[in-house]
């Protein structure tokens, strides 16, 4: 495991990219979590961990301003949540594209740059107008960064899950955001793709100075790259460096039941004694079987 970077003598950062203070969210009268304090310093790679159904996606949506807080506050890139839209790249929880969808990957990436603009894209405008040409180059660049150039021209429903995920990361990157919010980007990928996509996200964080907030329920594929961890369990959260948070005493306190963190011979951390997650996966995974 790498030394957490925020202890390095970096030049002083302007502020935390994301900061939750005593935040709470209620959905339909039920408190999902409360008194959550999380801070993600700019330029760091932060994972939001926790068992399924604990409200990790809700946390992300609260940061995006899609879910209102019932108490406390959340600041994103120095502004209240929901007011820094263009500077955030968002990748929602696993979207499955219909295998019959006849739209190319590059078109999906391009929607990330101008999809919400009214009107029709004018034919040949991206060759004639300088601003359109710049947008086109940014699309090509984002595809290049995620290594998707080879398959960006194929219909998105027909590329593999890992390739789709790369294209979707390119879509989130296309406006050169300061903050990348990724909701379970490794979910339902095979192991080699998980490792590759995790490394890609870490490289984007490092080389492009993008703050990354990544939701996961398995810490192992991303653990080598993490600067910071927010661990969400029923009712509350603990935030800090991986070395501070993923320990037996911290998780025991968080769950209110004995939890042990073991280190396997290959260096993987294993959390033992974690209470079963409540089985309510309402917003997870569409009900169709995935084709890949």
């Amino acid at each position: 495991m790498r030394e957490p970077r925020h202890s390095d003598p970096d030049p002083p950062r302007p502020a935390d990219a994301v900061r939750f203070e005593h935040a709470a969210v209620q959905v339909g009268g039920r408190t999902i979590w409360s008194d959550v304090n999380i801070s993600v310093p700019s330029g760091e790679f932060c994972a939001v961990l926790g068992p399924n159904g604990v409200g990790k996606s809700t946390l992300v949506k609260a940061a995006l301003g899609l879910v209102p807080l019932s108490a406390g506050s959340v600041t994103v890139l120095g502004q209240p949540a929901g007011q820094s839209g263009r500077r955030i790249g968002y990748l929602p929880q696993r979207r499955s594209f219909d295998p019959g969808l006849r739209v190319r990957g590059i078109d999906v990436v391009r929607l990330g740059s101008d999809g919400e603009r009214w009107g029709v894209p004018l034919p040949f405008a991206d060759r004639l107008l300088p601003s359109r040409r710049a947008a086109r180059e940014r699309v090509a660049e984002a595809i290049e960064v995620v290594g998707a150039t080879a398959f960006a021209g194929r219909p998105i429903g027909q590329v593999s899950g890992g390739e789709q995920q790369r294209l979707l990361i390119a879509q989130a990157l296309v406006r050169r955001p300061s903050l990348l919010v990724l909701d379970e980007p490794l979910d339902s990928l095979d192991l080699p793709s998980q490792t590759a996509v995790a490394a890609l996200i870490a490289r984007i964080c490092r080389e492009h100075g993008v703050t990354v907030m990544l939701v996961a329920h398995d810490v192992n594929p991303i653990l080598p790259y993490l600067n910071r961890v927010a661990y969400l369990a029923r009712g509350g959260a603990v935030c800090g460096t991986p070395a501070e948070v993923i320990t037996s005493p911290t998780l025991t306190a968080l769950y209110g039941t004995p939890v042990e963190v073991l280190r396997a011979s290959d260096g993987r951390l294993v959390v033992v004694g974690e209470p079963e997650a409540p089985a309510r996966h309402t917003d997870r995974h569409g009900d169709q079987a995935r084709p890949w």
Binding site: Q93, R95, V103, V108, L111, G115, E116, W118, Q171
Partner: peptide, 19 residues
């Protein structure tokens, strides 16, 4: 046309972008 295309292909991201 364009936001409709966005909402058709990728409704989750479109909604997050305020479409």
């Amino acid at each position: 046309a364009r936001p409709l295309f966005f909402a058709t292909v990728d409704p989750d991201v479109a909604a997050a972008r305020g479409v």
